[in-house]
């Protein structure tokens, strides 16, 4: 009789935890991830020096705040994992131009304005899955 009772107990626990996890595993998973905020860089006019001439050229570039220019940069990108679209951090190496006011221009040609990670709860590593608090 006691065996049956503990079995019943176990059964209930199993099904309840399965139901619970079905609904909340997503949010628990998100909670365990690195919480980040992203920043969408905007185009700004910079006056840049040309390569061969001393002449200054006005050019539109993506701008990032100056304090970000002193750290490693990560972009947030969506990728498929386990049959769903998830967001991951990817480390990028960009070439920065001369600081102008509070902003650095991004000179690299292979940067197309992907959202940058502004701040994160803990130290990011390349390819880590992240949770974006202010997505869209």
């Amino acid at each position: 009789m006691r065996v049956k009772k503990s079995l019943l107990f176990f059964t209930l626990i199993f099904w309840f935890s399965m139901i619970f996890l079905t609904f909340f595993s997503r949010s628990l998973h998100n909670y365990m991830l690195n919480q980040v905020e992203i920043y969408q860089p905007k185009m700004r006019m910079f006056s840049l020096k040309g390569n061969d001439t001393e002449e200054e050229v006005k050019q539109k570039c993506y701008a990032i705040p100056s304090w970000m220019g002193e750290h490693d940069l990560y972009v947030a990108e969506t990728r498929e994992k386990n049959g769903e679209e998830r967001i991951f951090a990817r480390s990028i190496q960009v070439e920065l131009g001369k600081k102008e006011g509070l902003f650095y221009p991004i000179m690299s040609k292979d940067y197309f304005g992907e959202p940058l990670i502004l701040r994160s709860d803990s130290v990011l590593s390349d390819g880590e899955e992240i949770y974006v608090k202010n997505w869209r």
Binding site: M18, L21, T22, H29, N82, E84
Partner: peptide, 13 residues
């Protein structure tokens, strides 16, 4: 399994 593979629940149910 439990937190990273949501399709598992679908298939379980």
């Amino acid at each position: 399994l439990l937190f990273d593979t949501p399709i598992f629940y679908r298939m379980f149910w």
